[in-house]
Amino acid sequence: MGNKKTKLHYYPGCTLKEKTTNLDDTTYAVMDLLGYELIEPENWTCCGAEFPLTEEKIVGLAAPVRILRQVKLEGGNKVFTVCSFCFNVLKRANEAMVTDPLKHKRINAFLKDDITIDRVTGDKTTGFPEYNGDVSVLHLLEFIRDEVGYEKIRALIKRDLGKVKVVPYYGCRLLRPKGKIGIDKPDDPSIFEEFLENIGCEVIDFPFKQECCGSYLSLSMPDAASEASYNVLRSAKLNGADVLALSCPLCYYNLDRRQDRIKEKFPEFHEMPVLFFTQLLAWALGVDEEILGLDQHFCDPRSVLGIDKSGVEI
């Protein structure tokens, strides 16, 4: 060890610093083991969670473009995320800056007059350069496949996950809209399966891997969202899975933290552990249990990882 680490921009997003610190902590832990030093863009803000779908809401692009411009100003040419929502918004905002001259013009005109104030010296900076979409936005699954390589991951495995039957859950934001995301084929993806196989899981296929879990409707239409989440978890269980793996903090909220409300609506529902893909990777790479933040889960996933209730590995 003691090797110099490669610096890499990482955009965590707001939920990871508050409600799903387990996803943030395990990302830092695994990237450290893979030889990367993560840099968060200075003064990052929320990405806006939703890519604006109508011309009228174009100002929603200001936040993601500002984040990307900051990465570029810090000398970065790529940024990765683990949250599917952030990935989707940043990737699409970046693409809009390349392919849509009107959006490029309007957003750059809006952001040109940004003022930043140095916290120490009080110096003001203004007159920012145009952002032209030249930072590549990657999801960690994509970064591992294309830049780290599965071979390197396999060589670093410390714990055997062989007995764990996992279903990969893509949800919507990792794959769609079709033609805009490009992490994998939206109708027949395999990147998550390959990742799980390479970290030593037994992968189980199931028909709901690309279905929506209910997303933000769990706030505005909770009953409809519960039904959508129930369908996903039920299908995973029927197909023989021990655990469902995902990458989105909102899917995690709907599929794990709301299991009590799913049970209220569907009394025959069986609890099902849910883990972030970074938690599975961290465990396989030998990261300590407390970093995994398993106490934050509604449905305890310890038995899946072969840990008994007192925290001892079985």
Partner: peptide, 28 residues
Amino acid sequence: DYFGPQEIPAELADELPQQALVAVYRKF
């Protein structure tokens, strides 16, 4: 608003992920 901040029950406010709040307000 179709769905604004006043619609969120107080007991849920603590557990809701930020991205859900931002997304639902952006939409509705």
